[in-house]
Structures are given as C-alpha cells and as structure tokens.
Design a protein around this nucleic acid. Structure first.
Length: 569
RNA sequence: GGCGCGUUCGUCUAGGGGUCUAGGACGCCGGCCUCUCACGCCGGUAACACGGGUUCGAAUCCCGUACGCGCUACCA
C-alpha cells in the first residue's frame, strides 16, 4: 500500500457498505517520487506528508483558494501529515497583519486548522516570506556558484529589442546572454557602464523536463521552451519562483497540491530544485474554480458580470438582504460570494461550504454527495481529482447549505440564529431566557424556511411592536380590503380568539376549523385575512404557529389595528 | 505566435473497450401535498466538441482539428 495514493485498507473496510471505493487510481502514483502515504497506523518517518498553502495577505479569502487549501488540508489529515500555512508577503507594501487577519479568520471559521504557520509557529519558520530574505539570498548565491543562474546586466530596452527582433523573425525568443556577468572583469566593466543586474536562471537548452503529476499524469516540456526567468530583481528582492521553491525545500514540503495555473511554472521550479540539489516534491495540479458557466478563473473583481447569472444573483441577494438588515457595508470587494466572509456574515454553515467545495473537482463515486467531516478525511484521495476546471455553481452551493441546515436540530439552529438577532438589535444581548424560548419557537415553526442563519431576519414582524407593524400594501388590499366579507369575518374571528380558552397551535387549528365549518367556508376564507392582519405579509410559516408565538394579546392588538384601518374611510 | 493543460446533460459529476437505448445530484419544467411560502413526494427535460483511425465492438485507445484555460513579467 505504501507509495500509493489510495484509501488505506482500514478506511475502506470501515465504510464498505456505504461507499464503493474506486477500483484504482487514475494514475499509478508509484511511478513518480515515492509519495509517502502509508496507512495512518504505519506512519513513515522517512517521508512524512507535509503540504502547504501560501496565501498572499490580500485582505480577503478567495473561495477558490479555500478549495485548494481544503484539498491540501484533507490530504494532510488523511495521511497523518502536516498542513503548513505560509504567508506570501514578498512584496508586502501594506499592513500585513491587517491584510492577513481575514484570511486566518476565514480558515478558523471553516475549521481548517494549520499545524505550522502564523500564530502557531513551527520548527521550519519563520512562516512569513518577508522574514526569509537571507535564505533566498543564500539560495541565489548557490545557484550562481553552481552555474544554474547568472547575473544579467542587460538594460530592459536591450532585452526588449532582442525580443522584438525575434518576434519580427517569427522565431521564439531565446536570451542571448550577451550581458551575462560571467567573470569579475565582465562585472566591473558592466558596472562601469552604469549597469545594474538581475539574476536569471540559466535554463537548459536541450532535453526535457518531466513531472509525474498525480492529477494530470506525465507532463513533458522541452527545456528550450523555458525563458531565463528572473529570480532576483535589480533592487535585490526575490521573485515568486525562487522564494516558493526555497521555502518548499526548507519546509520539507512533500506534496505540492496547487492550482493548475502553476503547472506551466513547474519546469522552471524543477530546475531550481535541481540547482539547489534538493529532490522535488510530488506534484498535483488541481483544476481551477471557474466563473459560473465558464472556464475562466473566478475573480472577485467581476461581481457585476456574475450578477447577470440569475442563480449567482439570487445567492448574492440573499446575503445582501441580511447584511443590509445588520447595517453592514456591502462593497463589492468585501462582500461578495467569491469571498468567504460573505458566507460567514450571511450565516452559512462551514460544513456545507466545505462539502460543496470538495465536490468541485473531486468525487468519491457516482452518487455520494454528503460527506461529513470524518468521511471527507477518510475518503479523500488525489486519485479522485478531476482534470477539467469546474465552474462555481451558486445554486448547488445553496442546496448543500439547505441540506446541512435541515440536518441540524432546532436547538442548534437557534444558537446560530441568536447572534444575528442580537446584532440586529431585535433581542437583548445577551438574550433573556424568554427571548431564547421565543426564538426557539420561531425557528421550529420556520423549519426549512431558514436556509441560512441570517434568514431569521426575514421575520422582523415577530419582533416589532404591534403599533409599528407595517402591512404589505398589496397583501392588505388583496386579503382585507377587496374581499367584501373580510372585515366582518376578521371581526368575528377576533371575538372568538379573545374568548379562546387555549392559544396553542392545535387549539387554534380546531378553533379555525369550527369557525369556517359553521359558516360553510373554506379555511382560506379566514386564514389569509388573519395572516395579513397580524404579520403584514402574505407569506410565512403556518398561521397557527404564528398566532401561538405572538400570543393572544399581540394578536388581538394587531387585528384591532387592522380593523381600525379597514373601518377608516 | 510558441509551449503546456483541458473538453460527458445549463452546472457538478459517474464512466477506464461490450453490462451505455450513458447513471446520480443541482437547476429547470409539469404534477401531488397544502391556509400562503418553503419543505417533501412523483414524473419529465437534457450530454459523450468535431473528424479520422485501431478494433468484431469506442464516451473509453491513437492521431488531427476546433474551442477554452494557463504560462510565455524585474506578478503571484
């Protein structure tokens, strides 16, 4: 089993009835590096699984980034390895701590805990690239000394001229290396000309680079197709390809699970691994998370465009409505379904998001959709990762949310909902015992109408003073003003409610049944009128639950107010 | 332009030469339930990008084309 990326025998056996494991991985993982994924009962100290996610402190957590992080996290947990968070702040100009906070908060909220990284430390730190400069310099020096890199004294316009010439000749551009400072004499001469230098990789011009990608299989590229990439700028700062590889080496990263956009970067990075004399990790390039109905990578900057997709718009609208009631800002770059905070602020469940994201590019079999945290870890395998990019489906995400929400007992849903009501100022903070009891009753009555926790804010009518209740005009007209008998019936019902011995839903239902039976009417003849009178709305959960929750006093006060308006000219 | 990667219902996917008149889920459409809404239940719609091979047989293997995405930065 060692060296194979498949479920450990124990895990498969345990769940054999429920899930049918794949017959075999898509690719023979043993062809590449030994990937060290032994069963958890037999950890291999020689090649422990170590994976990383390296976010830039951008101030927000991208949903696609979460998917990549999730796959890394799952892989680490599945194989008893370590999940490392590394902060990619090489060109950090702003306040890193401030820009990192939403990202770390997002991970915490989702339950993606990291074993090494910011706040927790670890033996391979520091975990901020900005604090690792000396290591990068040492690596550059070593590449230079080994002939894997050179100092390039060319001026930008000279490089451009060479490129333009190659393009004009319709030939691929190949660096001339004319201004390579190979000797001390060269360097002095160039410096005397007022030239500065960058450090470039001296890429091979023959042969091929070859990786065995766990998702894509074998990927072969001609070395000659690779440019002499810059790894250190003229100002001495370092570039991504260099810093990333140095860190991955020093942090002992065993598997590089990252988005497909990095596949083309791999050969040049492989060259650095070679130059530094380190064995490369095992690669797994994940398909990107794309825009709804497209293959283009999802971006937080294109909200306006995504809003043209009805399902995306519906998801956004749900969150926006909630944020608005809480008085939160809804600026596109902070409040947006591409950003994880959107879901937290709307009251989504982390498990629902994780489950949805897991199935975006991965599947267990032909029917399993719901995988709880344990099952996700037990069954995750890179062999199940798809190759094609997957477009983000807002409707399906919502459907996972609904399913997870429905699975929660009312008491748990109440706990989720309470903070929203507190923040809206509709109940005390902390809520009183009576308020908690009322909210539990509301949550129970609302049942599956609460798709996200923030949906509780749709029930404002249950929290406002009777005198402040606002009627939906259309509903008021249709159910109370237009039907000729509405006012009379409502008045008669008012009397019965006032005299009702019991205000439980069951008793109220019996009362209403008797009321319509005595008059030879259908239930609808009175139910709608009462609903609009007491809630102001045409829609909502069961009327008897509604009346029972409001209680006799408030129900009568609201009906009286409606009757007064009906009586007015 | 060059190089790399990809392509099964609108979307996520199952599929590894015959069990595929291509399965599941979300969406959508229709119906049932019903005091409205939501839930639930039943039914339906809908796909192997195209063209060549290989083979008795191709969604599946090979080649090509088209289209999409990525890289080709002193971005990450």
């Amino acid at each position: 089993m060692r060296g194979q990326d498949g479920p450990a025998p124990g895990a498969v056996e345990r769940t054999h009835e429920k899930y049918s494991p794949r017959p075999r991985p898509r690719f023979d993982a043993t062809r590449g590096q030994p990937i060290g994924s032994p069963p958890m009962s037999d950890p291999s100290p020689a090649s422990p699984v170590r994976v990383r996610f390296a976010p830039s402190p951008t101030g927000y957590l991208h949903i696609g980034g979460v998917r990549t992080a999730l796959f890394n996290w799952l892989f680490a947990r599945r194989h008893g390895g370590r999940f490392v968070l590394r902060v990619d702040d090489t060109d950090a100009q702003r306040n890193v701590a401030e820009a990192l906070a939403p990202i770390l908060d997002g991970f915490r909220w989702l339950g993606l805990d990291w074993d090494e990284g910011p706040e927790v430390g670890g033996e391979y730190g520091p975990y901020y690239q900005s604090e690792r400069q000396p290591r990068y310099q040492a690596a550059v020096d070593r590449l230079l000394a080994g002939g894997f890199a050179y100092r390039d004294y060319a001026r930008p316009e000279e490089i451009q001229a060479e490129r333009a010439a190659a393009e004009a000749a319709k030939e691929p551009y190949v660096a001339s290396r004319r201004w390579a400072g190979e000797t001390d004499a060269d360097r002095e001469r160039f410096a005397a000309e007022g030239r500065s230098f960058v450090v470039r990789l001296r890429m091979p011009r023959a042969g091929q680079s070859r990786i065995d990608d766990l998702v894509r299989g074998e990927v072969v590229t001609d070395w000659a197709a690779e440019a002499d990439h810059v790894i250190q700028r003229a100002d001495g700062s370092f570039l991504y390809n260099l810093a990333s590889v140095v860190d991955d080496i020093e942090m002992r990263i065993s598997h590089l699970i990252r988005a497909e956009e990095h596949l083309s970067n791999t050969p040049r990075q492989l060259f650095i691994w070679q130059g530094l004399g380190a064995p490369p990790p095992v690669f797994a390039h994940l398909p990107v998370v794309a825009e709804p109905g497209s293959r283009v990578k999802l971006s937080k900057r294109k909200l306006d465009r995504y809003l043209k997709n009805p399902e995306f718009a519906e998801l956004y609208e749900r969150g926006r409505r909630i944020a608005e009631r809480l008085g939160h800002a809804v600026a596109a770059d902070t409040f947006n379904p591409v950003i994880v905070d959107f879901y937290r602020e709307s009251g989504f469940l982390p498990d629902a998001i994780l489950n949805y994201l897991l199935l975006l590019g991965w599947s267990l079999d032909d029917r399993t959709e719901i995988l709880d945290a344990e099952a996700r870890i037990a069954h995750f395998s890179l062999a199940g990762v798809n190759r094609a990019s997957a477009s983000f489906d807002p409707a399906k995400l919502l459907s996972f949310q609904e399913r997870y929400m429905q699975a929660l007992p009312a008491a748990a849903r109440t706990e989720l909902v309470l903070p929203f009501l507190e923040r809206a100022g509709w109940i005390g903070s902390p809520p009183s015992a009576a308020e908690r009891a009322t909210v539990l009753a509301i949550v129970t009555a609302a049942a599956e109408r609460l798709k996200v926790a923030g949906d509780i804010l749709d029930y404002e009518e249950l929290f406002v003073a009777d005198s402040a209740l606002v009627w939906d005009e259309k509903a008021f007209a249709k159910r109370l003003q237009q039907p000729p008998a509405a006012a009379v019936l409502l008045g008669e019902m008012r009397a019965e409610l006032a005299a009702a011995p019991d205000f439980t839903p069951a008793a109220l239902e019996a009362l209403f049944a008797g009321f319509v039976a005595a008059r030879g009417l259908g239930l609808g003849a009175i139910v709608h009128a009462v609903r609009v009178a007491v809630s102001g709305k045409a829609v909502g959960f069961g009327l008897f639950d509604l009346l029972s929750i409001l209680g006799r006093e408030r129900v009568l006060a609201r009906i009286d107010r409606a009757l007064a308006r009906l009586a007015a000219p």
